[in-house]
Simulated scan of single mutants.
Amino acid sequence: MANCGEPETRRDLRVFEDKYELTTDLAEYISQLSESSVNDRGCFTVALSGRSLIRLLEKLSEAPYKKTVDWTKWYVFWADERAVAKNHVDSNYKLTKDVFLSKVSILSNHIFSINDNATVEDAAREYEFTIRQLVKVRTIGVSESNDCPKFDLILLGLGPDGHVASLFPHHPTLELREEWVTYITDSPEPPPERITFALPVINSASNVAIVAIGEENAMAVQLSILTDDGKFDACSLPARLIRPDNGKLVWFLDALAASALNDNNGEPDKL
């Protein structure tokens, strides 16, 4: 069975009046992590996820970030992806390319999309193999606790049902501990076939950011953040299972998404 306990983790809760303020702070947050990782390791490994989240990255392609970020040191992955053609409207890769990647100078061989000509099972297996090769040469770091890849940053959106990446409530993928990348064929949201990072990989990252916008996500935010009373089944809300082992978790919320919380005054926390 899945380990649905909730260990302590370092968490930073940031609440913003609107999407513009959130997007501005998110861009600065990513820029700072990029600079720090490049200085420390010589590169910045980031895994993206989610449709609305991807659109928020467009700010990074504008001044000052377009010129100040060392894009040549970026390595871009997807924490989850839909098993569709790269030019398909549902492709996270296509959306990311259109709104962000095509506007900055990230090297093409540093962008790692899934094989859209393979079956979803084979695509997941190939994607994990690619990540394992990059771990071997230390482009991607390694977690000391479980030998999982240690991405510098994993960016996650939040669904109204509490799902993150393509990890859905009570899905068997929540139980996986050995696989780094897995696949599903029964997503409750279309399209049904997807690849996704497993929980241990997400929780091994140096930094994880969960972004939620809109009132439709308010209840999922509340249940994900508020202290568990010991009776709540965390597997019914995968976002509760995002607890970086030796990393930091940051929540980026607009006022509507945070509206069900009672422990803040709508002001963003600071790093």
Rank of each mutant, 00 (worst) to 15 (best):
A212M: 07
C43H: 03
K73G: 02
S145G: 10
W71V: 00
S108K: 09
E6H: 07
E189W: 13
N264Y: 08
S204I: 03
R132A: 10
F197C: 00
S143M: 04
T119N: 10
V221M: 00
V89K: 14
I106D: 14
T227W: 15
T196E: 06
D245C: 11
E216Y: 10
A209Y: 03
T96I: 00
R138Y: 15
G214C: 02
D40C: 12
T139E: 15
E28D: 08
D147T: 14
S105I: 06
I154K: 00
I106H: 15
P172Q: 11
E215H: 12
G50P: 02
G42W: 08
L261P: 02
S37M: 05
E193G: 07
S113K: 01
E17P: 03
S36E: 13
R240S: 02
A209T: 08
H163E: 04
A79T: 02
A257G: 08
V69Y: 08
P7T: 03
P7N: 15
V46D: 06
E58G: 01
T196Y: 07
D122F: 15
V137P: 13
G266F: 11
S204N: 07
V89D: 15
L271K: 13
E144L: 09
F16G: 04
S105A: 12
K248G: 08
N146M: 15
E216P: 04
S91I: 01
I225T: 01
E28L: 10
N87L: 09
F77M: 06
E121I: 12
R177Y: 03
V164R: 00
L53Y: 12
T96A: 06
D254W: 00
V76W: 08
F112D: 07
W71P: 05
Q222N: 02
D12P: 08
I184C: 09
Q133H: 14
A239L: 07
F197Q: 01
E81C: 04
G266I: 01
A79Y: 01
G5R: 07
S37V: 03
E28H: 06
T119P: 11
K136D: 13
L167F: 04
N262S: 15
K136L: 15
F252W: 06
Q32F: 10
